Simulated assay, not measured.
Amino acid sequence: MQHLLTLLAGASLATAGVLNAPSRIIKRDSWGGSVSLGPSKSTIVNAVTTLIPGTAPSTQNGELFLWPGMSNGTGDLIQTTLESWPDNSWCGATTGQWCVRASVFGGFGQLDGTASPVSGSDKVRIEYNLESDDTTWVQTVTNADTGAALSSYSIDAGPYMTGYGTGTECDDSCTGTIAAQQYLNTVITLASADTTFGDTIASASGATYTGLSSSQGGKVWTISTINVPAM
């Protein structure tokens, strides 16, 4: 997980793509639980998970982010984020809801898709897919139960993704999570088999996982559940 967090801390962050949306804060205060895999001897070509975020804090002091992220050798971070700000009305969220948006971070700043509100019990399906040109990553965020579109973003970031992990990020002395998060049926597909990829799995700050398995000779890796406790 450290390679993901280091790249995130070093990014020069700005906002684009969402009218009046708040920008990310560079300062990092603390991190919640996490589970990560990588680096792989191969590269990732698809990653999908379904996140149940739990209720967001009813009031917020700083900025709180939940995300599954992927890092690459160029310093880009592919990260769809669920966000809790002191005022979440910018995405239409009400008390206890999150704002979700597909985002990418790098030396160019922060680039975002449109944002939507989601409730704590919503199942947010987040998929990252490398297109057939082997350079374009498409993030697709939907409600897993209804299929409703929540956010999307596409960017040329190259076939360099080698690490995948969850993050609970608390910036600017934020109010931490008040409910557990759960990631369901996380599936990571590699360009070629890496039978040692599962050996790289790590967890921190009380997060746990179940059902790590592989198929297609180590090309497809699945984690049945990831459970992240409240902060």
Rank of each mutant, 00 (worst) to 15 (best):
M1E: 10
H3W: 01
T6A: 15
L8P: 00
A11S: 15
S12P: 08
L13W: 08
A14G: 14
A14P: 07
T15K: 13
N20K: 11
R24G: 15
I25H: 02
I26W: 00
R28N: 15
R28E: 14
D29H: 08
D29S: 15
S30V: 01
W31P: 04
W31D: 12
G32R: 05
G32K: 05
S36R: 02
L37E: 03
P39H: 02
S40T: 11
S40W: 02
S42H: 06
T43H: 07
I44G: 14
I44H: 12
N46T: 02
V48P: 04
T49Y: 03
T50K: 10
I52C: 02
S58K: 10
T59Q: 12
L66N: 08
L66Y: 11
M70Q: 11
G73N: 15
I78G: 00
T81K: 12
L82D: 10
E83N: 07
E83T: 04
P86H: 11
N88I: 01
G92V: 12
W98F: 09
R101W: 03
V104N: 04
F105C: 06
F105R: 08
F105H: 11
G106D: 00
G106T: 01
G107S: 05
Q110M: 13
G113M: 01
T114K: 11
S116V: 05
P117A: 14
P117W: 01
S119L: 13
G120M: 05
S121H: 07
D122P: 05
K123N: 12
V124E: 07
V124D: 07
I126W: 07
E127P: 03
Y128H: 10
N129L: 13
E131L: 15
E131G: 13
E131I: 02
S132A: 15
D133F: 10
D133P: 14
D134M: 07
T136K: 04
W137Y: 01
V138K: 07
V141D: 01
V141I: 14
V141L: 06
N143R: 09
A144W: 00
T146K: 06
T146N: 06
L150Q: 05
S152G: 05
S152V: 01
Y153T: 03
A157W: 00
A157E: 00
P159T: 03
P159D: 04
Y164H: 13
G167K: 03
G167R: 06
C170P: 03
C170R: 04
D172L: 14
S173N: 14
S173H: 07
S173P: 00
G176Y: 05
A180R: 07
Y183A: 09
Y183R: 03
L184F: 11
L184E: 14
T186Q: 09
T186H: 05
I188Q: 12
I188N: 10
T189S: 10
T189A: 04
S192G: 02
F197Y: 15
T200M: 09
S203L: 09
A207M: 07
Y209I: 06
L212H: 14
K219P: 04
W221G: 06
I223K: 11
A230P: 05
